[in-house]
């Protein structure tokens, strides 16, 4: 594994109002790895991702402390936050098809970045939709509203959209919530493929999904990192922390 650090998180604290949600967590994500993030509801997984691409700042009352660096650059001090966000593909847990056509959903980010060439956009949109295993279902009706798709299709649309700005990092937040097992497997294969030249942070409630895909797995619990280790270790009979064993095996609290 390439040991270059793509994301460095150190002493990250996050609070909403006076409620602290992340209590000073530190970890690194290496370039080209898939890092699984597991943990029970409310443990702060979604918030963690939103800190990385700084969309957390659109929540009034959210305060971030500590440091997150992407490619060695502190995200709080990047010159071009839009460029930073384009470097990070984000797949939100609830499928959010923007109220635009399917085509415009996928072309949104490239256009925002200045892409105008129609032929290039056509090809690019097709490629992204193919990678998200959605192309065959929608190729005849690219001008239909994205919000008219089924839940699972919308979720794949958000994946296509997250890939559309050719990110170096892909953050997936429970991407398979509304997707059937067969399609999930297809997308998991795509993710393995993509991880050759992309760094992937995979937040998932399906611990087995982390086991299948992730090189290392981070167990987040109540805003603390309980354990971060190679996935074999986390899923072994004797991980570093008893709580990890209990959570992974479904005998948690």
């Amino acid at each position: 594994m390439n040991a270059r650090k793509k994301i460095e998180v150190s002493g990250l604290r996050l609070s909403f109002g006076d409620k602290e949600v992340l209590h000073g967590i530190s970890f690194d994500v290496y370039a080209g790895e898939i890092l699984g993030v597991i943990g029970p509801a409310q443990s702060g997984k979604t918030s963690l991702l939103r800190c990385i691409n700084r969309t957390i700042e659109f929540t009034p009352g959210a305060r971030v402390g500590g440091r997150i660096a992407v490619d060695g650059q502190d995200v709080q001090h990047v010159k071009d936050v839009h460029g930073l966000r384009r470097k990070i593909g984000m797949v939100a847990p609830l499928p959010v098809g923007l109220p635009l056509s399917i085509y415009d959903n996928v072309a949104f980010a490239p256009r925002a970045a200045g892409a105008r060439d129609r032929a290039w956009l056509d090809g690019h949109v097709e490629q992204c939709l193919r990678q998200a295993a959605l192309w065959d279902e929608v190729k005849e009706r690219l001008d239909v509203l994205g919000t008219k798709l089924s839940g699972g299709q919308q979720q794949r649309l958000t994946i296509a959209r997250a890939l559309s700005h050719q990110p170096e990092i892909l953050c997936l937040d429970e991407f398979s919530i509304a997707i059937d097992p067969v399609t999930t497997m297809r997308i998991e294969d795509v993710l393995k493929e993509l991880s050759r030249d992309m760094t992937i942070v995979l937040v998932t409630n399906l611990v087995q999904q982390a086991r299948r895909l992730a090189a290392r797995t981070l167990f987040l619990w109540n805003g603390h990192i309980v354990e971060l280790d190679r996935t074999e270790v986390v899923f072994s009979d004797s991980p570093g922390d008893r709580r990890t064993y209990e959570y992974v095996n479904g005998i948690f609290g």
């Binding site: 659109f58 839009h82 990070i88 949104f108 980010a109 925002a112």
Partner: peptide
Amino acid sequence: VPDSYREAALALGATRWQ
């Protein structure tokens, strides 16, 4: 318009005006 739409658009690197 739900905030999740705004956040999705901004996460795609769009500026506030875009």
